[in-house]
Design a protein around this nucleic acid. Structure first.
Lengths: 216, 216
DNA sequence: GAACGTATATTCGTCTGCGAGTAATCGCGA
DNA sequence: TCGCGATTACTCGCAGACGAATATACGTTC
């Protein structure tokens, strides 16, 4: 379903989008604009990939070098504009990204799935740290959003989304901690015993041997 | 803060964890166990990386080849066990993953931040598709979880987390759609006008020129 | 006008991720 | 017992990501 993109790096999406909405630019200028408009906080951009990605976009005909001039005494710069193929790719890519939920694998989820290698009381302490950091983070993001109330919210949805997801993560973590504290999380005793004795209680070992959550 | 890992691929975490809790194994066997216990649904494992990652783990002394024997008529297999350094790395890595919230950049967030290149009514349609897919997904995951109620929940937290995050995403999307339908999302008119006339309303253009959400 | 820090603009080399391919063995059916 | 598809187990080569380095111009201060 999700077709393989010729250029899959999301930096390419930002570049196409910028060149689609604005005038032709040279790579460094694009980078500057993306930084100024804060796009780099939404997509983990590695600027080291800039010229590789631009090169690939050109290779596949999604952008095109126009003039290669110099301004002032500066070294030569290649200015790119988007092509028709590029616009088509941008449209198609955006449709896919918006309409098709992608399986995400947050690193925290991986950590949770290996959680039992750490003793439960230590996990509690670590999760409390995480929770504090999350709360700080959320407060900071909320404060930043409040600074921007003069901007139309259409341009803030991605930031609002980020906060909402953080908040959901914090809420879930808090609930987990509560269950661990209250002892309502089944299997906790076996987990603790395993770390105290080095041995897994036999009925647990058996269950795990057959294992398997065949989700999705 | 988050130190660079010698072996950063999360597949390495799963391997270390498996070798830490169980007996020495050869790579393919590890892969089989990880699949059976469903770890591969928690961390986007690419099996093509298996031998590369195992090789790297060995290179840095986190695991160690023990016997290199053959069973039956099968070709030779190298069996690995975890080293002390490997255990230390596993512990340290787990602590970091649990305690430090990592900045995640879901692709959907990137899409939202470029949303305005697509006309608003189309975005609405696309988001409705996404929402339907999300709801199906959630229902399927919930059903899968219900099949596993005999398992201690300690081994299901990662799946519960995944559902919770999906649910949060769905809720947020639903709320956004409602705001777009009700017209309470500021900037929507300018967005629509832009796609109808090809021109950005001047007051919007101005705002964007100075741009910048300097979040985090 | 010398010196120094900063912004501009790009190149390079390494490393690793990963898909596709390979080859041997197993097991099942006819 | 002869295929033949599935499973087991692993190899390889390439593309591309990215960190670090480079180089030049510009502005500012003394």
């Amino acid at each position: 379903m999700a077709k393989r993109r010729r250029v899959g790096n999301l930096l390419a999406l930002a570049i196409l989008s910028q060149l689609s909405a604005g005038p032709p630019m040279h790579p460094y200028e694009i980078a500057t604009v993306l930084k100024r408009t804060g796009k780099d906080t939404d997509m983990n951009i590695k600027w080291g990939s800039l010229y590789t990605v631009v090169g690939n976009l050109e290779k596949y005909g999604l952008i095109q070098a126009t003039t290669s001039g110099r301004a002032g005494r500066r070294p030569e710069r290649t200015v790119y504009k988007i092509t028709e193929a590029g616009r088509a790719e941008l449209r198609d890519w955006m449709r896919e990204l918006l309409a098709v939920p992608d399986p995400e694998f947050p690193r925290f989820q991986a950590a949770l799935s290996e959680m039992s290698v750490v003793p439960p009381d230590e996990v509690t302490a670590l999760l409390e740290q995480r929770l504090a950091a999350l709360d700080d983070d959320i407060a900071a993001q909320r404060a930043a959003l409040r600074q921007l109330t003069q901007l139309p919210r259409v341009f803030l949805v991605e930031a609002e989304f980020a906060v909402a997801m953080r908040q959901a993560e914090a809420d879930w973590t808090r609930a987990l901690l509560a269950e661990m504290a209250a002892g309502t999380l089944s299997g906790l005793d076996g987990w603790r015993a395993y770390h105290e004795t080095g041995e897994l209680p036999p009925e647990l070992a058996e269950m795990l041997a057959e294992g398997g959550l065949p989700t999705e």
